[in-house]
Amino acid sequence: MNDIVRELLAKHGSLPVSVDQISDDADLYDAGLSSFASVQLMLALEEHFDVEFPEHLLNRKSFSSVEAIVAALAEITGDQQAA
């Protein structure tokens, strides 16, 4: 999942630096992720995993790092498996 998140981040994050240079826990907003790009990334993730981010994850924190995005996705896909 981490690899796919990084691939989509590279494609949709419009970051001024290469994604390889960003550690899993680095703050993506500090790295230059705009709120516009974070929504584009969210849409790409929804499309790729065929999921929908629930209201409580539509939060700056969910997209604050690669780690946080992976955790949010794990929560959503976990929920769906449980359903």
Binding site: L43, F53, E55, L58
Partner: peptide, 12 residues
């Protein structure tokens, strides 16, 4: 900005 957020957010 709002229209961008409304691509994913649903008003309560």
């Amino acid at each position: 900005n709002t229209s961008n957020m409304l691509l994913v957010n649903k008003p309560d």
